[in-house]
């Protein structure tokens, strides 16, 4: 944005940059000054190598949970969003209630509720993993349906009118006319939501389902060395989040090229 850049420069962009650099150096200096060097010099990241299999398994579980959340979320979310367009009012209310319930309470509470309270009520006990999957998928479908709904609303009403005028059958209308352009506008929010469920999967650690964070906690407890493993795990999460957003940047650019051609 040329005009905003000009405004920033005119209103002291240079001074701001210098001040920020000074502040940065100050914060770094203060941080380094107060570091406990003994701890720092005794860090052994190499020791983690023997846990590589456990960590990889945990990572596999995390990625599985994330993909499950994204896949089921998009599928169920699309269904819910289509039901939201239904003329049957009670059906719509039910869906709205479901979505609002899962969006407006913490996933941790849902998770504990599903794992501890649901078996008491139904009499059917679930394993930690099953409870975790149920909770994450239920929440994912609520969150993803909001994105799909917004995507469907972004399709110009003319498309619908035109397909009505052409006498296109309902399922063709959804599959060929409305959903494809809707999904194209939905790519960025869908990716953000997927990254957000990568983060959510770590919460399942409270049930020790065996994903990356569970593994990290176990290693940290076993070695009494939390810094190494937690730092590595944080970096791994960051890397995969970055990877997902980077890949999508590519997909987006490719679709944009096709559109403009």
């Amino acid at each position: 944005m040329a005009a905003l850049d000009e405004l920033i420069e005119v209103s002291g962009g240079r001074t701001t940059r210098i001040c920020l650099t000074i502040a940065l150096v100050g914060v770094l200096a203060a941080g380094i000054w107060s570091l406990n060097w003994e701890t720092l010099l005794n860090l052994h990241f190499g020791d983690l190598w023997r846990f590589r299999v456990a960590v990889l398994k945990g990572l596999g579980m995390t990625l599985t949970l994330t993909s499950a959340a994204a896949a089921c979320g998009i599928l169920a979310g699309t269904l819910l969003a289509i039901v939201m367009q239904s003329p049957v009012r009670p059906l719509r209310w039910f869906v709205v209630g479901y979505i609002e319930l899962f969006r407006n309470t913490p996933i941790l509470v849902q998770l504990i509720w599903i794992h501890f309270a649901l078996p008491i009520l139904t009499g059917v006990p679930t394993t930690a993993f099953v409870s975790g999957v149920i909770a994450i998928v239920l929440q994912a479908s609520a969150y993803f349906s909001e994105i799909v709904r917004a995507g469907i609303q972004s399709v110009p009403p003319g498309y619908r009118e035109a397909s009505d005028a052409l006498g296109i059958p309902v399922h063709t209308r959804w599959m060929r006319v409305i959903l494809p352009p809707a999904f194209r506008t939905m790519i960025p929010p869908l990716v953000n939501m997927t990254i957000s469920f990568l983060k959510t999967s770590a919460i399942l650690t409270v049930l020790s389902v065996g994903e990356l964070m569970t593994v990290a906690t176990r290693i940290s407890n076993a070695t009494f060395r939390p810094i190494e493993i937690l730092t590595v795990v944080a970096a791994v999460y960051f890397f995969f989040g970055w990877l997902i957003s980077r890949l999508t940047g590519r997909i987006e650019a490719a679709t944009a090229r096709r559109e403009t051609r």
Binding site: L35, N36, T39, A202, T205, M213, P226, A234, W242
Partner: peptide, 25 residues
């Protein structure tokens, strides 16, 4: 901004709770 928006909240909380006291004594 990218880092703290991308890592899971739980990881951040555990990191600060169990690493920060050690690092700064």
């Amino acid at each position: 901004i990218d880092f703290f928006r991308t890592i899971p909240e739980v990881v951040l909380i555990f990191w600060i709770y169990s690493c920060l006291p050690l690092l700064f004594g």
